[in-house]
């Protein structure tokens, strides 16, 4: 029996789109479309096993070798800095990490900037690069609320269309980094299964070009 290639997919719309690319590349697993409570899905003939995990957990599964391959947003990779290979930019799930503030906001460089964000490492590094003194406020959700209530001056968050911002009278003022979905691989497992992992990565790259 072939050893399985374990692939961690991010739960949600992005993950479903990514699975479509696996299918297109010839690494399909029909049982994944059945509506049941199973957590892992195998295609023994192709030697692959998929499983859905929380998007922010994909990097952990891959770094610790429970998954050989995974699909993670660049935001997660920049925030958690896992020791993994980044084999491919899938070019989907595109958005950007941006600084946003109230329309009326005027930056005063003489003051410490209060920054609310879920991505503390990305924000810290971004402002360190500008030698700007900041006060980081870590929030787990509803980041947009912070500047409205005066909790922070700006936020650093993912902006897709900017609609949520607009509805709350906020505007993006600066792009921190563009984001898209990346294929990551565990470094050690890559050594022992390199041919098969490469074949999958190549298939996905082909699917990317075709789309």
């Amino acid at each position: 029996m072939k050893t399985m290639i374990n692939i961690a997919l991010p739960k949600g719309r992005l993950g479903e789109k990514v699975y479509g690319m696996f299918e297109q590349a010839g690494f399909d697993c029909p049982s994944i479309k059945e509506n049941n409570r199973k957590l892992t899905f195998e295609n023994e003939e192709k030697g692959i096993r998929f499983f859905w995990v929380k998007p922010s957990d994909v990097a952990i599964y891959v770094e610790r070798g429970a998954a050989d391959l995974g699909i993670a947003g660049k935001d997660i990779l920049l925030e958690y800095n896992p020791d993994v290979y980044e084999l491919l930019d899938l070019g989907i799930g595109k958005c950007r990490m941006a600084v946003a503030a109230k329309k009326t906001f005027r930056d005063n460089p003489a003051k410490t900037l209060r920054v609310a964000t879920k991505f503390t490492n990305i924000a810290r590094e971004f402002y360190a690069g500008k030698c700007r003194d900041i006060d980081i406020i870590h929030l787990n959700g509803s980041i947009e609320l912070a500047p409205i209530l005066g909790l922070s001056d700006v936020i650093v968050d993912i902006v897709e269309t900017g609609k949520t911002l607009l509805e709350n009278d906020l505007v993006p003022i600066e792009t921190v980094v563009p984001i898209s979905a990346r294929v990551i691989a565990n470094k050690a497992n890559f050594k022992f299964k390199s041919e098969r992992i490469e074949a999958i990565a190549e298939g996905l790259a082909r699917a990317c070009r075709e789309n």
Binding site: E63, G65, D83, N186, K187, A188, N189, K191, F192
Partner: peptide, 9 residues
């Protein structure tokens, strides 16, 4: 150096 079964060098 890597050995199979350990996820890092």
């Amino acid at each position: 150096g890597f050995v199979q079964g350990i996820p890092e060098g």
